[in-house]
Amino acid sequence: MNWSAIPYDYKLLKGDPMLILSLLVPFILWALMHLLFPFLEVLVMKQWNVDISPYYRQTGIFFLMLIPMMMGMVYGFILLDERDGGIITAISVTPTGKFGYLKLRMGIPLFLSFVFIILFLFLLGLTGTLNILQLIVISLLISSQSLILLLLLGAFADNKVIGMAISKGFGILLMGPLLGFALPAPYNWSGAYSPLFWASRSLLSDSQDTFWLYASITFLFHLFLVWILFRKFTARSD
């Protein structure tokens, strides 16, 4: 990994308010959960006599899934900027090469997502009965969702307009855990098309066995998607 290139990312981000705003999303989500949810809890109870507190964890987990998506989008758009400017081609003829470049582009959103997710889990008390190893594993798995969006943009988006469309379409994967939470069995399995469905199941597991089973499915699902998209990206002639 070419660590010395990282400080320049800050300078690339600095000029783009939309990207900076996206990086603030984890804090906004935390504030919504921390401040708004208790307020809503009281309000909904008063108005409709419904207790929404059992859904605190599900809501938090859904918000958590937005973090890697935002990171993937931020860095995916930097990648598209670099493609537009012919930068990826210029890096391709250095020893770092396209592969080295991609490692750098993938490493930062993965790392940032991981840090934010771990913080999110602890600060909002979403850890449940999971031990520290399980929390690290599931945080890494959810973080790798950022790579899928980044690579999806890198592999298929020729420009930012297509990039925006892909990012919006990516929201379909977020529907997976929502379907899992909202629908009764067996309809809740309709969210199984999304790796995030499996990740959310893993996070909500009560037993060791189910945690590792769902975590393994999430891992294999992500590995398959990253592998396909990585190949597609590196096969491009830019």
Partner: peptide, 10 residues
């Protein structure tokens, strides 16, 4: 390259 490919923001 024929067309300068540089980081415009740097």
């Amino acid at each position: 390259f024929e067309f300068p490919n540089l980081y415009l923001k740097l």
